[in-house]
Every structure is written in C-alpha cells, then in structure tokens.
Amino acid sequence: MRNSRGVRTFRTVWMALVLIFLYAPILVMIALSFNASVSRSQWTGFTLDWYVKVFHDPSILGALRTTVEVAVIATVVSTVIGTLGAIGMHAMNTNMANVLINVSYLPMTTPDIVTGVSLMLMFLFAKVPLGKWTMIMAHIAFDIPYVLFSVMPKLRQMNPNLYEAALDLGCHPLKALYKVIIPEIMPGIFTGTLLAFTMSLDDFVISYFTSSDMYPNLSRIVYSSTKLGVKPTMYAVSTMMFVSILLLLVLINRRTKLEDMG
C-alpha cells in the first residue's frame, strides 16, 4: 500500500516523539554525568572527573562489590536450582507438571514491591536479620523463574530419544544427565544465567526490602543519595549501570536470535 507524503511524515515524527519520551531522560542523565558543573541547569564543559571520583569513593566501591557479589552468588545458585528443576518438571510429563511450571513462572509477573514486602515479612517472621544473605536469598528466589523460562523451551525442543540413546550406549541415568542432557540444553542454561545476572544487577525494590542500610547495593546508594541532593557521581554510577545492563540485554537478544535460527 502506498502512503501519501503527509502520512509518512506523520509516522516519522510520531516515532521520533516516542523515542524522545522514552530515552530523553536517560540521555539527559548521561549528558549530566559528563558535565563539569555540579549544577543541573548549565553546561560548563566536558569532564570525566565524576567517573574518576566514583572509583575513589569507598562507599560506592563497597556497594559495587555487594551488587556484584549478590548477583554472582544468586545467579550461580539459581542456575543450578532452575536447571535441575526444569529437567525434573519436564520429566514428570503429567498434568501436575504443567500446573507446577506455570506456578513457578508466576513470580516474574508479581510486582516487585509485592515480592519484596512478602519476602521481608517472611524473614522477619523467621527472625532472620536482614542483610546481605537475606538479599541473596531473595535474589535467588526471583532469578529462578528466569532460568526455568530459558531452559524449559530447550528441553521441549530436545529429541526425546536423546536420554534413551545415552542409556542405550552405556550411561547410567546420572551420567546421561551430565554427559548428554546438560550439554544439549547448554545454550538455554547460558541464556538463563545471563538473564538472572541482569535481573540481579538491575533490582532495586526487592533488595531495598530484604537488605538493610548496612549492606547497600548500588541501586540503594543511588536511591539514598536522592534524599541529600543528587551528586553528579550518581549520574556516573547510573550511567554505568545503564550501559552494562544494556550490553547484557543486547547479548541475550543476540543469543536468542541465534538459537532461533539454529
């Protein structure tokens, strides 16, 4: 169908407006992170000082370490639990398994604030002091569905005879699991790991409710700083978080596309 010039112009302008509304705030923040002035209203020249400052600020570095530590531990644990859980549920092959799988996806759609508050209540009820380990447990809990979500389709696509072929050639069941099943679904496991890691890095709300100010992660530091007036170092921190998560998402996207083609 051919469109008149007017329709085409409208379409381009509309598209541009959508993109501006979506990304202008982030672009402003990125720009401000390179602004020599502390003021948000004037541009006094380009500088990398704020980035240098970030890496000399012990509280930010501590928070960075907490964020990465939590993300790594939660990712590893949730990858193992999620993968084994997916294999188990896949093997059940009953109506019950379907219910179970759908229930395990549920946390992905639950609002973070609900997950965060309910986990906090659970920890308080169990008299577990909030801190790094409660935060890690919370991250494991919300990461697992993402691993399941990436691994499950791989299991469904897999030739059902592969496991039997491994047994047939002399593997006992456990050996068949790690010599054949796991390598076969490895692309899905890896995608799940990346997703879980991204979600962990990204999270603020759940971490806020399940940790304490004693163990701040990056997003908590950024949030706390807003109460005292935001310093440009926070723009730099946020910019770096944005870029690293963007890169991870691009990576995940490309992997998913490659897998769909393969």
Binding site: N161, L162, A165, D168, P183
Partner: peptide
C-alpha cells in the same frame, strides 16, 4: 545400559 543391545532411534538422536 546393562544390556548387550544397542538401538538406532527413529529420529537418529545424535548428540
């Protein structure tokens, strides 16, 4: 895995 029997599966089932 303890039988002296091997199988060629319908859809090959190669690794």
């Amino acid at each position: 895995y303890k039988r002296r029997i091997n199988t060629v599966f319908q859809k090959y089932a190669l690794f």
